[in-house]
Every structure is written in C-alpha cells, then in structure tokens.
Amino acid sequence: MDWIPIVFVTFKVLVLGTGMFFAIKWHYDQGKKEKEKETRAVLLAGGKVAAVFVLSLLGLGLFTFGLIRMLGL
C-alpha cells in the first residue's frame, strides 16, 4: 500500500479542520463584537429619543401653562 495518499489526506484533513475551526471562531467573535456595538448604538438612539420626548413634553406643558395664564383660566 502506498503511504503518500494516507499522509497527504491526513495532513489535508488536519489543515482544513484547523482552518475551519479558526474561521468559525473568528466569525463568532466578530459577531459578538458587532452585537456589542449594535447594542450600544440602539441604547444611545433610545436615549436620544427619550430626551427629545421629555423636552417636547416640557415645552408643551410650558406652552399650555402660558396659554392658560394669558387667557385667565
């Protein structure tokens, strides 16, 4: 039996298996990193929307209060 195909096939399986393992690990880690950035961006955007809502509510309340005082209600 020829030993060269056995050695080359074994080497090929080991190299491709190792490469696949590190490729999957790298993509998994990149997804984790992106998820952290994405979560931070969503929280930042949500905070901005909440701040705009509170400021709008405050402005509407002040406008209503001024209108009521002006009309003498």
Rank of each mutant, 00 (worst) to 15 (best):
Met1Tyr: 12
Met1Pro: 11
Asp2Leu: 02
Asp2Ser: 11
Trp3Val: 14
Ile4Pro: 00
Ile4Asp: 05
Pro5Val: 02
Ile6Cys: 03
Ile6Gly: 01
Val7Asn: 02
Phe8Asn: 08
Val9Lys: 05
Thr10Pro: 00
Phe11Asp: 10
Lys12Leu: 14
Val13Gln: 10
Leu14Ala: 06
Val15Leu: 14
Val15Asn: 02
Leu16Val: 12
Thr18Ile: 06
Gly19Ala: 05
Met20Trp: 00
Met20Asn: 02
Phe22Tyr: 10
Ile24Trp: 03
Trp26Tyr: 13
Gln30Glu: 15
Gln30Lys: 15
Gly31Lys: 01
Lys32His: 10
Lys32Tyr: 10
Lys33Ser: 04
Glu34Ile: 13
Glu34Thr: 12
Glu34Ser: 10
Lys35Asn: 13
Lys35Thr: 08
Glu36Phe: 06
Ala41Ile: 09
Ala41Gln: 08
Leu43Cys: 08
Leu44Met: 06
Lys48Asn: 12
Ala51Trp: 07
Ala51Arg: 02
Phe53Cys: 09
Phe53Ser: 11
Val54Trp: 02
Leu55Ala: 14
Leu58Val: 11
Leu58Trp: 07
Leu58Pro: 02
Gly59Glu: 03
Leu60Gln: 11
Leu60Asn: 15
Gly61Trp: 11
Leu62Lys: 01
Leu62Gly: 05
Phe63Ala: 14
Thr64Cys: 10
Gly66Trp: 06
Leu67Ser: 13
Leu67Trp: 13
Ile68Lys: 03
Ile68Arg: 09
